[in-house]
Design a protein around this nucleic acid. Structure first.
Lengths: 189, 189
DNA sequence: ATCGCTTTTTGCCAAATGGCAAATGTTTTC
DNA sequence: GAAAACATTTGCCATTTGGCAAAAAGCGAT
């Protein structure tokens, strides 16, 4: 919970009352390795913030292959759709790579926070925009690189993930096969 | 100008007064082929909406190569940063591929619209989020495809761009070399 | 129609990556 | 600690892509 508060405070100021409100609404939950947090086609009912663990976001392409779109690690918001009111049904899966701890808010409580704390919306928007931009930048960069560059980039940008995420997922994220990535790693050593 | 109004109305309702306000603030400008609309490192002073033409967004990677991140075509908002107040200095270039027509707003006027029209912020946010998501999805998909699939995907998703954008830019966008793309096209025929 | 300039295609060969299956290594379970 | 389950590496070869340079095609100005 405190991780979430600290995180939010990086993006805007909140007074004690406001912090208490947030604290009173958030609930901690745990997800075991390999459990889904979201499933494609199933309506999302909560807003989450990952405080511990790693989650993998993936979808199935038209050949039925599982493609990892990105990883979510500690201190990241997991939002559903643009607005709280909107019913949101993802087209991708979120699955825990390790055991995870999250702070979650029901949509109702989130809405209450939104209605009570002036500026909350702006804070969340800031976070969302930041994450979006980062993802676009990162994905775009990958495309112009060869396998080795992609991997070096990955270990540099996500040093804490390299040893916690199975090679096959990293390979999928980088757009190369697992065996190629294995060879690339050999060459780097 | 009317294209902009029509576009905005897809995302939210506005009354006649509000539309008139917008109309009174927007100015039409033209940009010739190969001119820059944004340059990396130069502060952006206006909000733009592309009504005609195609713009290329690119940056230089660490080898000094020009990498096309994406294309902007008709009916797309070109925003600077998260908020109007923020001074925004892009790290990429926007350059006209064809002659372009834009509707532009000074930051001051945009702010006035923002302060006058309740819900304007939400409309813009919706648009931005939509574009972001589309870009992330598109870029992610490319990564798991080979050259041929990338190109087929491109012509299917941007049929109007294929014949207006030089091959070298498309190749760069798709993360393959121009000669490879040329061969791919030959094989497809 | 011709010249000059830019864009696209092509040939040649090298390098990178994919596909598949077996071997090896690691972790979990009983 | 052995067996089973899972993850990673490796060998082998086919395919794809890259790099470079020359040729061909396209285009605009005169």
């Amino acid at each position: 919970m405190e991780k979430f508060i600290d995180y939010i405070l990086q993006f805007g100021n909140l007074n004690k009352q406001q912090i208490d409100l947030i604290r009173s609404k958030g609930a901690e939950i745990e997800i075991c390795k390999d459990e889904y947090y979201w499933e494609a086609g199933k309506t999302v009912k909560q807003i989450g913030f990952l405080t511990d663990g790693v989650i993998r976001v993936f979808y199935y392409n038209n050949k039925g292959e599982e493609i990892t779109r990105y990883f979510i690690d500690e201190n990241h918001l997991i939002l559903s759709g643009n607005t709280v009111d909107e019913v949101y049904t993802p087209s991708e899966y979120l699955s825990a790579i390790t055991d995870c701890t999250l702070v979650v808010f029901t949509k109702k409580d989130w809405k209450e926070i939104l209605d009570t704390i002036i500026g909350w919306d702006a804070i969340v928007q800031k976070i969302v925009t930041k994450h979006h931009s980062e993802k676009i930048t990162r994905r775009s960069e990958l495309i112009s690189q060869d396998g080795t560059e992609r991997y070096l980039d990955f270990i540099q940008k996500f040093p804490t993930l390299v040893n916690r995420v199975p090679l096959s997922y990293i390979a999928s994220y980088l757009g190369i096969t697992q065996s190629s990535l294995s060879r690339i790693r050999k060459n780097i050593r």
